[in-house]
Design a protein around this nucleic acid. Structure first.
Lengths: 147, 147
DNA sequence: TTTGTAATTGAGATACAATCTCAATTATAC
DNA sequence: GTATAATTGAGATTGTATCTCAATTACAAA
């Protein structure tokens, strides 16, 4: 099995793009962050290592990582796009707490199956799918009761 | 059964808010549009009837309509929030064609059930959920083959 | 009907994420 | 090494969404 760096290198080569130090830095940064992150969090982390690194480069690189299936957009949170790396992970759905922002991940095989069924029904060729449930996590529910 | 205007009036009254001509205009506009729309489409339509109507008022009113369950956000399309009215409609999922923008609506009772199950599993109190599938509709698939 | 008051409005200013521009730089193939 | 097309950073720009504030208005109570 290839490493994520190999994956990225191959993707770039196939598309006549270059593997630059900036792209390498961003790639490593993405996989060193625990799961969900937005562009600013990533920039803040990487900017410490390379003061020159521009936000624009991150904005330009992340779509490439999406394109070669190393990361994906998840839910939008407070107007910002959130990403997570998916290389070596299975697809899963998200439950987002509206109060504390906690994200619960859940995989439900039966839902995946039903989605495929729906696509077949409409002769729809799915590229990507996202199930997001917004509400309140157990802790926040308890807090709200307590008030 | 109440009309959507009654629903809105009740909601406003309960919250000490006013039923203004602008809000009435926006409400009617929303329900006269066929399903999915974004704020600009709505403004363009309403601006013709009332040249004074400000975008800000629409931006301020739509969250009220969401709050009282007359409309809901659907998928984000090209960076814009899309809305649809749901008064008198059942919840449904969306299949969005990445090429032509066509939106297919689908309701699948079994998925709804499974979602409830997941929420129970995590003691999560859902407020809202959205399932979006992005890909290519049948027509666009055929077009792409043809090329 | 009149009045008091708090909510609402429009217009423009503002905030902010995301994108674009362009000269300077650099990775890659030969 | 050299040629060349891709890439970069910094700042400008775009475009959605939000905020500000003085003027206006809906609505409840008199």
């Amino acid at each position: 099995m290839n490493s994520y760096e190999d994956e990225f290198r191959n993707y770039l080569k196939e598309n006549g793009l270059k593997f630059t130090p900036e792209r390498q830095l961003i790639l490593k940064g993405v996989f060193s962050l625990h799961k969900h992150f937005d562009i600013d969090q990533l920039w803040e982390k990487l900017h410490r290592k390379d003061r020159r690194l521009s936000r624009a480069t991150i904005y330009r690189t992340l779509p490439l990582l999406v394109e070669c299936n190393l990361i994906q957009e998840t839910l939008r949170c407070q107007g910002r796009v959130q990403y997570e790396h998916i290389f070596g992970h299975e697809h899963h759905d998200h439950l987002v707490c509206l109060k504390c922002g906690k994200i619960i991940e859940s995989r439900e095989e039966r839902i995946e199956k039903l989605q495929e069924e729906i696509c077949k029904r409409y002769h729809f060729k799915a590229v990507e799918h996202r199930l997001g449930i917004r509400g309140y996590c157990q802790k926040c529910q308890n807090k709200m009761k307590g008030t």
